[in-house]
Design a protein around this nucleic acid. Structure first.
Length: 472
DNA sequence: CCTGGAGTTGTCCTA
DNA sequence: TTAGGACAACTCCAG
């Protein structure tokens, strides 16, 4: 019986509880060597996601230390690092949690093959998703392209109960060397904004569990009714933790199910949102081109602007379009790394329709700014808003940001929190925006609030006319 | 193979 | 002031 160490390779699973790979490793009783590898994929992350990942790794390292273990941090191509660790420690197994984006899949497939060739027991486990993307199929044996039937297909499935945190994580006789996480510069691309964004974050699995508990205790009942009002603390904000795996969809699912059984009115909607994330992964697995190409190829002919330097694009990024809902939301994202779901739809509709700008430009900016960035959800959301995606909004559904503001921010609380210009005593968060943005933007809270860069009716008409004139 | 209902999130105009 | 219908046509999906 082997007593050699098992390497547990962490990626976007920064937790000890409900972790099938770690659980399986600990069950063997063999020494466990947890490792995080800063490889090309990590270096390629956007500024905010990379910053957030760094905070999560730091926290995970503390959690392991508290448990009498240690997280080993190394840089380099993942296979090289794993092979080096195997040589140094005598490990004969590497366990990890599966990822589903095409870059990770290609890397992990190669690594698994190479390790197996070297007689290393390389195993991937679930944990990131409730339903493996290939385990959900419609009556024709194909993947789902529409959400509602997908939901119907999975809503009554048994979902495994979350696994406990391992009672004991056996340490190796000696620990391999670890790099200092502080040397990795995970926050460097954030420049001025890091300290400000940090104040709005909720890092680590214990904090995530507490967040879920609070949501179920206080908010889930009113979730359906209140979730569309961005000024209200109605949503769970768990996307931040889900994307780095500080909490699992299993834990969310079972908490939501318990609330539903206890009669919480909004619980089913919460469960549906958890499953939207699953659906995004389902789509990304079956059609990975959703990340980079129009999912409906006919949209290739649509006359979107791809000029990233256009003044309208800059105004959109800066929250200076003159449309208060759009500007409010863009600033919320810059300062907190988060944007309310309804606001995401509105800023995306505005960019792709009123400003006739390609969704790829918006997708890339979100990828740089969102603390809860997720490859599958981001791509699905942008293509949905643009009209080019699966299950997309009908072309005539063009959000009017002014109407939306009246409907969903009737008291003006959302915009007051984020817009300082023209306000005698602006909200602290509205002022902090100007401390977070690059100085090169040359913006000040005492500037005049801008006029709309496009008239809403003209922008709408132009987008609809472009669609009418389509050749696809 | 055919049939028919349905499709996350809206807006605008008219009566 | 407000409620209802138009706004396209198509694909998806289950039966």
């Amino acid at each position: 019986m082997s007593t050699s160490p098992i390497i547990v390779w962490h990626r976007r699973d920064l937790r000890l509880s409900d972790h099938p790979a770690l659980h399986a490793a600990c069950e063997t009783g063999r020494p466990v060597i947890p490792v995080f590898i800063r490889d090309e994929a990590v270096d390629a992350l956007g500024a905010a996601p990379k910053f957030r990942l760094g905070l999560g790794i730091e926290h995970l390292a503390k959690t392991y230390a508290d448990a009498g273990s240690a997280l080993i941090c190394r840089s380099g191509p993942a296979l090289d690092v794993l092979q080096a660790l195997i040589r140094e420690t005598g490990a004969t197994a590497v366990y990890w949690s599966r990822l589903y984006d095409p870059v990770s899949v290609a890397r992990d497939t190669d690594i698994k093959a190479d390790l197996k060739t070297a007689n290393v027991d390389a195993r991937s486990f679930g944990g990131h998703l409730l339903f493996e993307p290939w385990d959900v199929a419609n009556g024709s044996g194909s993947f789902y392209r529409v959400y509602s039937p997908y939901w119907k297909a999975v809503m009554n499935r048994d979902v495994a109960a979350p696994l406990p945190r391992p009672a004991r994580i056996a340490a190796p006789e000696s620990w391999p060397a670890s790099e200092a996480l502080g040397d990795w510069g995970m926050a460097s691309a954030m420049r001025r904004g890091a300290d400000i964004v940090r104040q709005h974050l909720c890092v680590g699995e214990d904090a995530a569990q507490e967040r879920l508990a609070q949501f179920v205790e206080n908010r889930i009942g009113a979730y359906k009714a209140r979730r569309d009002f961005p000024a209200e603390p109605a949503t769970s904000h768990l996307s931040e933790n889900l994307t780095v795996g500080e909490i699992t969809p299993y834990q969310c699912w079972h908490a939501g199910m318990r609330a539903r059984e206890e009669g919480a009115a909004g619980a089913e909607h919460f469960l549906k949102e958890v499953v939207w994330r699953e659906f995004a992964y389902h789509l990304m697995h079956h059609t990975p081109e959703i990340l980079t190409e129009n999912w409906k190829p006919g949209w290739d002919a649509f006359p979107w602007s791809e000029d990233e330097e256009h003044p309208h694009v800059l105004a959109w990024k800066q929250g200076r379009t003159g449309e208060r809902f759009v500007d409010t939301a863009m600033r919320e994202m810059y300062v907190t790394g988060h944007m309310h779901n309804r606001a995401r739809m509105i800023v995306a509709s505005y960019l792709t329709k009123h400003l006739m700008t390609h969704w790829k430009i918006g997708l890339a900016w979100f990828e740089d700014c969102l603390i809860d960035w997720d490859p599958a959800s981001n791509a699905m959301g942008w293509q949905w808003a643009a009209g080019s995606g699966p299950d997309a909004a009908p072309y005539f559904r063009v959000f009017n940001p002014a109407t939306q503001l009246e409907k969903f921010d009737p008291m003006g609380a959302y915009q007051r929190r984020w817009i300082a210009e023209g306000v005698a005593t602006p909200h602290q968060d509205a002022v902090s925006y100007f401390d977070a943005i690059p100085k090169s933007w040359n913006l000040s809270a005492t500037d005049r609030y801008p006029r709309p860069v496009v008239a809403l009716d003209e922008g709408r008409k132009r987008a609809l006319a472009a669609y009418e004139a389509r050749t696809f």
